[in-house]
Design a protein around this nucleic acid. Sequence first.
RNA 1: GCCCGGGUGGUGUAGUGGCCUAUCAUACGACCCUGUCACGGUCGUGACGCGGGUUCAAAUCCCGCCUCGGGCGCCA
Length: 462
Amino acid sequence: MRHVRTKSFRQNRTRKIVLKFGLTQSGGMQNRTYTADAEPGDHVTVAGWVHEVRDLGGIAFLILRDTSGKIQIKFEKDEMDEELVDTGLGVARESVITVTGAVDEEPRAPTGVEITPEELEVVAPADPQLPLDPSEKVDAELSTRLDNRTLDLRKDEVQAIFEIRAEILRATRDHFRKVGCTEITTPKIVATGTEGGTELFPITYFGEEAFMNQSPQLFKQLMAGSNLEEVFEIGPIFRAEEHNTPRHLNEATSIDYEGAFCDHHDAMDVVEGVVKAAYEAVAENCADQLETLDIADEFDLPEGDFPRLSYEEAIERINATGELDEQLVWGDDLPTEGEKALGADVGGHYFITDWPSEIKPFYIMDHEDDEQLSTGFDLMHPEMELVSGGQREHRYDELVAGFEQQGLDPDQFEYYTKMFKYGMPPHAGFGLGGERLVMTMLELDNIREAVLFPRDRQRLSP
RNA sequence: GCCCGGGUGGUGUAGUGGCCUAUCAUACGACCCUGUCACGGUCGUGACGCGGGUUCAAAUCCCGCCUCGGGCGCCA
């Protein structure tokens, strides 16, 4: 039977342990046991980091931490080898050690078990002066944490965020595949952007001007015209906007979808399914991590269908809240304050549909019966925009005219437009901000918390 | 891009012109302590982002630079 862990230590992490157990360890540690798997009566070798040493005099405790949790190592000074005790109690916090010894049931130990060491090896000593404190007795600022991300990831909460992020990506992929999509990857180095050159990072490509792609938009559309028909991509996008907010990154993860013979309603159905699948997977498989983040109690699955408000309804509702100093009129883009007022009013995820054509990109199709109205939609979380999508313009003449109206040279996009001459079906899709999904789901204050090594206006390293 | 607010020991902070030889916590070092679980106790080490200016006197006021965070715009 698995022992019960107290809340200050990691809960049982059965699923992860099962996945890892039996894997061959590299580095000559084939016999290593994860701390969460150490059972009374076992004789084990555990490997990990020195989380803390508590020396009470005649008896002392070393807390060893690994990916699965923590375990207590007991030192009784009068009864144990002096050199072993000196080594164990002299080792600096966060040093990597291996400990071999017997596991005993011990009600006074934090996890109900402790190891009496027979051998202890310092594998990699740590500098005693740490740039941040993984045991979290004192906070560190985000900037300090990002500069020392490896140490930051040794904290349970931070580890939990990235384990959940991985689960979200896994669930997202599974859902797309379940609905018949093929996963693709498209170039990140491109000759031209999606909507012009102003917000792209320029690079040099064998002496030629090139850019980091801001979106897989054009490529995924080309695949909607292929026999793949329905595709998705999870990959990086790059934006050179000099924004400085807690919800923008200059390198982000975009979860993109494009489907042939789909309209914007179909695309909304797909994205709704993806978002719900991500929430469900996290609820089902990340209970410990949610507990660690202290959001397990309020973690609600999105219920029912996401409301689909037209742009016109949206501005009316925003105006009705009275939160804005100036009333919005048709054609205005929604200010951040308005989005938040509407989000609070709706109280959950919702779509905004039927945007004015002029504030949506030219490749979004207009309604057949009203060319002022686009099929573009946004999926909103109460706090911010998560998704932008719509049905695409698949008619060659209209598409080329759209480029010209935007002041873009259609010749530069010929690689794209010409494929619309050879049978491009009606198609629709969306782009979902991966980090925003993580951030809103986990109630993170800053999007940088959702990325290992964020790229923002100020930060290029590490 | 515009606007606002910060930068004090390793980390996180207190400190609005003299009481600063700079507070507290934690870390680090030494010593005491046989069941801790943020162990406890005693002692100790360690800091005002950089440059210039105002003043008898600057961590504190002013200017420039560097740097961090937030709001807006725009977006995912």
